[in-house]
Design a protein around this nucleic acid. Structure first.
Length: 622
DNA sequence: ATAGGGTTAG
């Protein structure tokens, strides 16, 4: 007996994965399963039927199921297996041909199938034979209503999360409003739906109004905050969750780690790792990946790699997190090496992996290597380049000063360049002081995206570099007239397990007086070292400038001053910033690291800067 | 005998 045929539990998934197994093979398998009495239990029978259906033999699948008496139970088991399988759309075909009227179980499986399709559509993962996720969603909801099962709580919660998966919060709200007495599960589904739709405040109101919250409800709310980037709120809520005595499990910790990663809360992240070990929690792929991501994004890349190496099972997410972590930390060569290891390990890289490895090459100036990766994408891995990848390539050439190559690359693109491509060229023009090219790139960029704030700021900086102050104020006027809003800059620093956030020109911190004194002291000691503020790149914070009539302090300087006050001298200062660090702040921080003899690790939008003894790990190349 | 809500990479 071939080993595969010994146990339905092992043979069925491989059958389901095969696109179109030969009918002879199926019949042989069927016969074997019958003879060896593997199909005696209904669950095995349903699994076999589902495997048949998944591999394109729905009619055969139905024949396998008991016909007389036709039990709805067996057909429901088929629906369930199909809804969970690789081709959830088949559940609709099976539903249409049910030999008996469907019950509330049938409907809940159908809704689940629609949810799976909606989730795949949202992730742009086309599922074979897919019609239209929205159409199927509405029809499954309609079927539930028609068959009189819309009031079943399992169907209700399923419908709410189905619309959420489609991205239709309004429909989720409407479905929720129809529910006379939503139970805990339905409310939790709605909390998740609201948060996923970006309305985290509405989610919180609903959450606060819950008479009872179990750990899943807490998880939904914590994850909701993480989803919209409110990491500090997520961590605060997690504290409350623990005080409330809710069970902390894998899902919770994954969200908490994601929050730590977002805001660079290394101490908190370390605590989670310790907590996992002290509870002897299993290092699942998801949890391990979240740890690798957290350590990478907190600049602890060595620890990230230790976790990575210690993991027993790794998937494409894990590898991509690690590759991306090395890229972000400026370790281009190591990033490339890990990518090659990934290839030899037989893990198929996807588009996200290539974004990471191309960025790694770009940051380390590895132009030829990056080019080779880009070429291998399609040839070797069958991944079609996205617009982002074209942007990465322009960045790769442009950063390295090969502006002609960048332009040729754009001209040879088989698709219309998008704003990211022109943005990369614009940035390269700024780095290499090419005003003409910068103007050209900006025109193209604004023709596509007239509200792009970063583009206006970059143009202003290009003008400022060439001392063209009229140009600077013109850009400012244009932004005002067009109503372009600059994303407010913030910097975060963790002190004593608490996250402190600073905003441009902010004065609201309880220790602002001390911060001001420290800033004055920093300025005094820097002047002694011959530092003069960089007026070339003018600080560009319209709102603040207008309010205060003076140039405001960028948030990273406030965070830095606070770090110098609040952290012991032996400790490095870690700052996370949401935008890219400007040249002035970069120069300033380099000198501070020298004059105050401190290590400063700053994560900006794109990468890490590791300041020590007056130099930065990015070698002024960012 | 079959069911629902929360979890990872750019």
């Amino acid at each position: 007996m071939p080993p595969l045929l010994r146990d339905p539990a092992t043979v069925l998934p491989s059958l389901a994965a095969a696109p179109h197994p030969h009918p002879h093979l199926l019949r042989a398998l069927h016969a074997h399963l019958l003879v060896s009495a593997r199909l005696a239990s209904l669950s095995h029978l349903a699994a076999f039927a589902a495997a048949l259906a998944s591999s394109g033999h729905l009619a055969y699948a139905r024949l396998v199921l008991p016909r007389r008496p036709a039990t709805l139970l067996a057909h429901n088991a088929l629906l369930r297996a199909l809804a969970r399988g690789a081709r959830p759309g088949l559940a609709f075909a099976a539903f249409r041909d049910l030999p008996l009227p469907p019950d509330h179980y049938s409907l809940s499986f159908l809704v689940r199938a629609a949810t799976a399709l909606a989730a795949a559509a949202a992730a742009e993962r086309p599922v074979p034979g897919q019609v239209n996720a929205r159409l199927l969603a509405v029809s499954s909801h309609g079927a539930a209503v028609r068959r009189g099962h819309a009031a079943d709580p399992h169907v209700q919660s399923g419908v709410v999360s189905m619309y959420a998966a489609l991205g239709d919060v309004a429909d989720a709200r409407a479905a929720f409003a129809e529910i006379a007495c939503p139970d805990l599960v339905c409310v939790t589904a709605m909390v998740g739906a609201l948060a996923a739709g970006g309305d985290v405040d509405a989610a919180r109101d609903l959450f606060d109004g819950m008479p009872l919250r179990d750990h899943v409800a807490w998880n939904a709310m914590v994850a909701g905050y993480v989803h919209v980037g409110k990491s500090r709120e997520a961590l605060t809520l997690f504290d409350e969750m623990q005080r409330a005595g809710a069970a902390v499990g894998e899902a919770t910790l994954v969200s908490v780690l994601t929050a730590c990663a977002q805001i660079g809360a290394l101490n908190r992240g370390n605590w989670v790792h310790w907590y996992m070990r002290s509870r002897r929690m299993r290092m699942s792929v998801t949890l391990g990946t979240a740890l690798v991501d957290m350590y990478s994004k907190c600049g602890a890349v060595v620890t990230a790699m230790e976790v990575f190496e210690g993991m027993g099972e790794r998937n494409v997410y894990t590898w991509t997190s690690a590759v991306s972590g090395l890229a972000m930390n400026g370790m281009g060569l190591e990033c490339l090496e890990l990518f090659k290891r990934m290839e030899s390990a037989g893990i198929q890289p996807n588009g996200v992996t290539f974004v990471a490895v191309l960025r790694g090459c770009s940051m380390a100036g590895l132009v030829d290597e990056g080019q080779a990766c880009f070429d291998s994408m399609k040839d070797k891995h069958g991944v079609d380049p996205w617009l982002e990848h074209y942007g990465c390539m322009v960045d790769l050439y442009g950063r390295a000063g090969r502006l002609d190559d960048a332009i040729n690359f754009i001209n040879d693109m088989p698709v219309e360049p998008h704003e990211g491509v022109w943005g990369a060229l614009l940035n390269a023009s700024r780095i290499h002081n090419n005003v003409e090219l910068g103007k050209h790139a900006l025109d193209k960029l604004l023709a596509i995206e007239s509200q792009n704030d970063a583009a206006h700021v970059l143009l202003s900086n290009i003008y400022a570099e060439s001392q063209n102050w009229k140009g600077v104020s013109k850009v400012r006027g244009v932004m005002k007239a067009k109503g372009v809003k600059k994303v407010p800059g913030w910097s975060a620093i963790e002190v004593g397990g608490k996250i402190h956030e600073f905003f441009v020109g902010g004065r609201s911190h309880p220790r602002h007086k001390e911060i001001e004194l420290m800033l004055a002291e920093m300025g005094r000691r820097l002047r002694l070292q011959g530092y003069a503020a960089n007026t070339k790149e003018v600080l560009f914070d319209i709102e603040e400038e207008e309010k205060e009539g003076a140039i405001s302090l960028h948030s990273e300087k406030l965070a830095l001053a606070f770090g110098l006050i609040a952290l012991p001298e032996s400790e490095e200062i870690r700052i996370v910033k949401n935008l890219r660090v400007c040249k002035d702040c970069h120069d300033y921080t380099k000198l501070i690291s020298k004059v105050f003899n401190r290590e400063i690790i700053m994560r900006d939008r794109n990468r890490f800067h590791h300041f020590k003894d007056g130099t930065c790990s990015c070698k002024d190349y960012w």
